[in-house]
Simulated assay, not measured.
Amino acid sequence: MSLLEIQNMTQRFGGLTAVSDFSVRLEKGELCGLIGPNGAGKTTIFNLVSGFYTPTVGAIEFNGENITGKKPHKVTGKGVARTFQNIRLWHDMTVLDNIRVSQHNHLGYGFLDAVLRLPRYNRRTSEIDAWAFEILEALQLAQYANEYPKNLSYGLRRRVEIARALSTKPKLLLLDEPAAGLNTADLDGLISLIRWIYENFDITIWMIEHQMQVVMTLCQRIQVIDFGATIAQGTPKEIQNNPEVIKAYLGDDTI
């Protein structure tokens, strides 16, 4: 059974077809890429998988369960986490609180437990704090636990966003252009970070990325879309040498 399977998915917005007859199958433990020109429909596909949109046509199965049309918090609860091209952190909350709040799907206590500070509430609060610190330490962010994201560098904010996604204990991590806005030095650090996450967490990673250095270095398989439709699939080497991909996206001077 595949971890994620999308069958013949189409998404229309009025007269615009953003995604056309898209299918993909991700197996547990893969690290795969989704690339294509701006406006090709990549982020729309991630929005469909994570529950922000409901497909016009098609089905999305995750871990053997149909999650088509489920709300984002329900999809997260099933084990899908994501980051965004434009970093979405709560900038007036500390880094630690950004991680804590992501645990809302795993609280394990009720309203009365919280109001009366019952043992269940105290126990789960301690467990959530311990897990948050563990994630921050793993991603070398513990020293920024009480800092506000708005005061951090762009590269660190990106790392915090990835930490928040990982704190939900996902089976599938969707990375939407994690290298966006990073300089060359930060790019090398990002590649090392994603590789480390892949090797140390029991996780499948699916990433959208325009930086070919990131995609070609990390991904085992790559799917290319243009105008919402798949034009190529294969290994990094196969994609680099695919004439349709070169014509639509990479350009002769990229290979």
Score class of each variant (00 low, 15 high):
Asn183Trp: 04
Gly69Ile: 09
Asn105Tyr: 01
Ile203Cys: 03
Val160Met: 06
Arg82Leu: 02
Gln213Glu: 12
Asn47Ile: 10
Gln213His: 08
Pro55Asp: 03
Gly39Cys: 06
Ile231Phe: 00
Gln85Phe: 06
Thr94Arg: 05
Leu118Tyr: 04
Gly36Arg: 06
Gly108His: 01
Gln223Thr: 15
Pro243Leu: 03
Glu127Asn: 08
Leu173Phe: 01
Arg120Val: 14
Pro72Ala: 02
Ala114Gly: 11
Asp252Cys: 00
Ala229Pro: 00
Gly33Arg: 00
Ile191Tyr: 00
Thr44His: 02
Ser50Ala: 13
Asp252Arg: 04
Glu27Arg: 07
His73Met: 13
Ile87Lys: 12
Gln103Lys: 05
Ile45Ala: 11
Cys219Pro: 11
Ser20Thr: 12
Leu152Trp: 10
Ala40Val: 11
Thr217Cys: 00
Ile45Val: 15
Arg164Leu: 08
Gly41Lys: 04
Asn98Ile: 04
Asn8His: 10
Lys70Met: 15
Ile225Ala: 04
Ala130Leu: 08
Lys150Phe: 14
Leu89Thr: 12
Phe84Met: 12
Gln85Trp: 06
Gly29Asp: 05
Ala232Val: 02
Leu116Ser: 11
Asn63Arg: 07
Ala179Asn: 07
Leu175Phe: 07
Leu174Gln: 03
His91Met: 11
His106Asp: 05
Asn38Lys: 11
Gly108Lys: 02
Asp92Lys: 01
Ser167Asp: 11
Cys32Arg: 08
Gln233Val: 14
Asp202Lys: 04
Arg221Thr: 10
Arg124Asn: 14
Ile239Ser: 05
Ser153Pro: 01
Ser20Lys: 13
Arg120Gly: 04
Lys150Asp: 13
Thr56Leu: 08
Leu193His: 00
Val214Tyr: 02
Leu175Tyr: 06
Thr54Pro: 09
Ser167Ile: 05
Val224Asp: 14
Asn98Ser: 03
Lys28Asn: 07
Arg25Cys: 08
Pro236Asp: 02
Leu141Gly: 03
Pro119Arg: 11
Ala138Ser: 15
Asp21His: 06
Thr204Pro: 04
Glu177Ile: 09
Ala185Lys: 14
Ala138Gly: 04
Arg117Val: 12
Thr184Leu: 13
Arg117Met: 06
Ala165Thr: 10
Leu250Asn: 06
Thr17Ala: 12
Met93Thr: 00
Pro119Gln: 12
Arg124His: 10
Leu16Arg: 06
Gln233Ser: 11
Phe133Gly: 08
Gly33His: 05
Gly234Tyr: 07
Asp253Thr: 14
Val57Asn: 14
Met9Val: 15
Asp226Gly: 10
Ser167His: 00
Asp202Ser: 10
Lys28Asp: 08
Leu26Phe: 14
Leu89Gln: 10
Ala232Phe: 00
Asn183Asp: 15
Met9His: 07
Met207Ile: 13
Ala114Pro: 02
Leu173Trp: 01
Gly39Ala: 02
Gly51Met: 09
Gln233Cys: 15
Leu112Met: 14
Pro178Ser: 13
Val115Ile: 15
Leu139Glu: 03
Asp97Val: 10
Leu173Val: 02
Thr76Asp: 09
Ile35Lys: 08
Ala132Thr: 13
Ile239Met: 09
Asp97Leu: 12
Asp113Asn: 06
Val80Glu: 03
Leu173Arg: 00
Lys71Ile: 06
Arg123Lys: 15
Gly41Tyr: 07
Lys150Arg: 15
Gly69Phe: 07
Pro236Met: 05
Asn38His: 14
Gly189Cys: 04
Ala145Asn: 03
Ile135Ala: 08
Asn146Leu: 10
